[in-house]
Design a protein around this nucleic acid. Structure first.
Lengths: 351, 351
DNA sequence: TTGTAGGCGTTATCAT
DNA sequence: ATGATAACGCCTACAA
């Protein structure tokens, strides 16, 4: 790998002139520039990002922390984020932290040592401290979907509340009155938003809210989310000879993963959708139209989340480089929509 | 951010002693080590990865180039790769190159400037040169799924040939004699493997091979793969009043993406699966069981591909750091299996 | 066992 | 407009 010095030697100039040519922040005579450029391309010179970063104190790398990448919604986020970042000349270090605070800390340490310019995260726990440490180290910070308390950072999230309210309202209007909600722990902002939408729709309809219908499948590694989902479905299962109004008649799954797991559980238990139980899924899944029955979904645009998060990060980085006045944290709420399909058709229509 | 010097000052030792403590390659008196460690943790010291990399000439970052991340098989690869890398203390820069050689070159340049220790790639074209340049710069190189000619590098791929032969054999045995194959361009190794398996099964059955049945949907950005798939399906479409043996009666989709697109096309054209046409998909998709009808799949383990690729990369990095004799390139062929489901049931069974 | 000094490749300040 | 020089934070002979 040729260095700036070798280029300088070949061009018959000093290293600083080569640097000046490449940075373009200082006037250089045309003739000189030409000589430098041709020497550089002749040698195949490329500036060393490491040395640049060490010298200038800033890297062109972003850290992206997500629970796991195989969730299609998250894959879309990663896709959008990497594309936007790379268009701006930034590399993206992707970490799968599996909702595990310890894994999260490990990877945050790694990113900190690598001096990433910003971290975009779906944090694994409520503890703001590891992220605060990152900020102290000078990195910008963007949260997605959830944010620890007591820390100032930009935020991007889909509008789960509105979409959830719309979904629940639809279910209620089509005769579903015992609606189960499978979602995350309540420290997660988007979980609270979902529950808020769920409750709002119930209140609007004058229906009581049964806490027992809200369950939190364990999504950490090694856990068996199937267990709690099956328990809920079995416990509340609609008897084949429908006996009354106190049976579960709808399920809303709060993520793409859980949507699929729930589908499998319903399938395994022999519960018919939508005849016995209506099902509404959540996430950016391209197969929703094609499963049997086609799935009603709370749809979110993962790519846009990733793109917006990176855009926020780049803006923060820009500000911190130009020593601009700190702007207050920004919160971007992206639209989420309810897509109606057969899996939430009225029971009467099919049964 | 505290530096090694500040830690040294606080501990009353020299910077090199602090370095020795952290690297652990040189004996240090226990008392000294304790003092250094407590000073370090008191100050919140963390070694600067940039400076280390600049000094030692090696970084702890891997580059991962894939076409796009939203393909679930690829998401699984990325997931497996990042987990394995991070367990070894390596960060992973993920790039979505969309089968675009130019985008690929841009990102390879970026990774080269960042001095990544290794690049793991599903290359976007046949040209080995950009990768050769990377090797010259000292990076290790691992290919997945396809490899340019004229370049020595490790390789990981699923055994598409065997699985494809099994799938085609099954289709033929159940009465499908006009089997369309949707796959990639033939410069891609795994495409050739698929075609080899496809042809082997035909030859074994004494059936002729019709080149017109092998199509290559354009998967580059902006392209409409739907067009060529629809053209194929429409052209060969089985008439509702089946008139003879020269109609298309089965389709094999060569990737997870194309599987879904094909499903949509079949759906839109009103072609019934499996009554009119049998369908076999490819990839690691968790929803195959749940679509209507459940999809027969050539299943591959993306996570394992990612893990093995990173393992190979780490081994190469280790070798190059210890100046070991260069081993010959390694090629790992992972099993792929054919999973039989309703979408490839005999036509007679349903029609 | 510990300290000193030089340099990795670059940028930035200050002369010229 | 260009050149000499001193860092950035760390590792590594070599000296003590």
């Amino acid at each position: 790998m040729p260095t700036i010095k070798e280029v300088a030697a070949h061009a018959g100039v000093s290293p600083s002139t080569v640097s000046n040519v490449f940075l373009g922040r200082v006037p250089v005579r045309d003739e000189t520039r030409r000589r430098v450029l041709s020497a550089a391309s002749g040698l195949g010179y490329q500036p060393d990002g490491l040395a640049q970063a060490l010298r200038t104190g800033r890297t062109r790398t972003l850290g992206l922390l997500v629970p796991h990448i195989t969730n299609p919604t998250i894959a879309a986020i990663v896709n959008g984020a990497t594309r936007t970042a790379q268009d701006a000349g930034y590399a993206v270090s992707v970490c799968a932290i599996e909702n595990d605070p310890q894994l999260q800390e490990t990877y945050l340490d790694l990113l900190r040592r690598e001096r990433v310019a910003a971290v975009i995260a779906q944090p694994a726990g409520e503890d703001p401290e590891p992220y605060a440490a990152l900020q102290r180290a000078g990195a910008s910070l963007i949260f997605m979907d959830r944010r620890p308390c007591g820390i100032m950072a930009d935020y991007v999230t889909p509008d789960y509340r509105t979409a959830m309210r719309e979904a629940v309202r639809h279910l209620i209007e089509t005769g579903r009155h015992r609606i189960a909600l499978l979602t995350g722990p309540t420290w997660i902002d988007s979980t609270r938003e979902r529950i808020a939408g769920y409750e709002a729709a119930h209140i609007e309809a004058g229906l009581p809210i049964d806490e027992e219908l809200i369950a939190t499948p364990d999504r950490r590694p090694g856990a068996t989310p199937t267990a709690s989902i099956t328990a809920l479905l079995r416990k509340w299962r609609a008897p084949l000879n429908a006996a009354g109004g106190s049976c579960l008649d709808a399920v809303i799954a709060g993520s793409a993963d859980v949507t699929l797991i729930t589908l499998a559980c319903l399938h395994d238990l022999g519960i018919r959708v939508p005849d016995d139980v209506a099902l509404v899924g959540t996430g950016q899944v391209d197969w929703a139209r094609f499963v049997a029955p086609p799935l009603s979904m709370i749809e979110i645009d993962g790519g846009e989340i990733g793109r917006r998060a990176v855009t926020l990060a780049l803006a923060r980085i820009h500000d911190s480089e130009s020593a601009a006045d700190p702007r207050p944290p920004e919160a971007i709420v992206l639209p989420a929509t309810f897509a109606l399909r057969a899996s939430s058709a009225p029971a009467s229509a099919a049964g």
